[in-house]
Simulated scan of single mutants.
Amino acid sequence: MSTDTRLTEWHKAVFDKDLALLSQLLHPEVEFNSPFVWTPYQGRDKALGILSTVVDVFENFTYHREWVDGNEMALEFSANIGKVSLKGIDLIRWNDDGQITNFEVMVRPGNGLMTLAQTMQQRLAEKGLM
């Protein structure tokens, strides 16, 4: 899968909230590094649960800059949760088969990170994922 195809598929999964496509893009043993906890989450089901929740939590989600180097991507984004604005970076590593093997998220400023953490904890608990 070419870099352009991977980026196009990722954008489609995120902006169309296409969970079937998102699931296909995630390797079964994907490692997801959350901005809230040190220990990564392991596996497609956990990563899919987190990512599908965050696409519902974020308002006005936009990618601004995208850096691609082979199987590595850094995607700068901004979003709101209510009145709180945040910025972040998605670091995505793909394998040669077009699946995401590692996904890491960084978020700032502190109040945006805390709002995201509280909102995600509540939503994930409601879904039975925490």
Score class of each variant (00 low, 15 high):
Arg6Val: 05
Glu72Val: 09
Asp45Gln: 14
Ala47Trp: 01
Gln118Ile: 10
Tyr63Thr: 11
Glu72Asn: 12
Leu48Ser: 03
Gly43Pro: 00
Gly82Arg: 12
Val105Gly: 03
Trp67Val: 15
His27Lys: 02
Gly128Arg: 11
Glu29Asn: 14
Val14Asn: 06
Glu9Phe: 00
His11Tyr: 07
Gly98Pro: 00
Gln118Met: 14
Leu26Asp: 02
Ala125Phe: 01
Leu75Met: 14
Gln122Thr: 14
Gln122Ile: 06
Ser85Trp: 02
Leu113Met: 10
Gln24His: 12
Leu19Gly: 09
Glu31Ile: 13
Gly49Pro: 00
Leu51Ile: 13
Leu91Thr: 13
Gly128Cys: 04
Trp94His: 07
Pro109Ala: 11
Gly98Lys: 13
Glu76Ala: 08
Met114Trp: 08
Val30Thr: 11
His27Phe: 01
Arg6Pro: 00
Ser2Tyr: 03
Asp56Met: 06
Val68Ile: 14
Glu126His: 09
Gln122Cys: 01
Val55His: 10
Lys83Pro: 00
Leu21Thr: 13
Asp96Ala: 09
Ala13Glu: 09
Ser2Gln: 09
Met130Arg: 11
Gly70Val: 06
Asp16Tyr: 05
Glu66Thr: 14
Gly88Leu: 05
Leu25Gln: 06
Ala125Gly: 01
Asp97Cys: 04
Thr62Phe: 00
Met106Arg: 15
Gln122Trp: 02
Gln118Leu: 11
Tyr63Arg: 14
Ser52Tyr: 05
Leu75Gln: 12
Ser52Phe: 03
Asp45Arg: 13
Ala13Phe: 07
Gly110Arg: 12
Val84Lys: 12
Val14Cys: 05
Phe77Asn: 07
Thr39Val: 08
Ile81His: 02
Lys17Ser: 12
Lys12Glu: 10
Arg65Leu: 05
Ile81Trp: 00
Thr3Glu: 13
Thr115Pro: 00
Thr115Cys: 04
Gly112Asp: 02
Ser23Gly: 15
Lys12Asp: 05
Arg108Val: 03
Met120Trp: 03
Gly112Thr: 11
Phe61Asn: 08
Phe103Gly: 08
Gly49Tyr: 03
Thr8Val: 01
Phe58Ile: 08
Met73Arg: 11
Gln24Leu: 06
Leu26Lys: 01
Ile50Gly: 03
Gln121Asp: 07
Leu7Val: 07
Lys46Cys: 01
Asp56Ile: 01
Asn71Val: 04
Glu29Gly: 05
Tyr63Lys: 09
Thr39Lys: 10
Ile92Asp: 04
Phe61His: 15
Asn95Glu: 06
Val54Phe: 02
Gln121Val: 07
Glu66Ser: 12
Ser34Met: 04
Met73His: 13
Phe103Glu: 08
Asn80Phe: 02
Glu9Ile: 00
Gly43Thr: 10
Met114Gly: 06
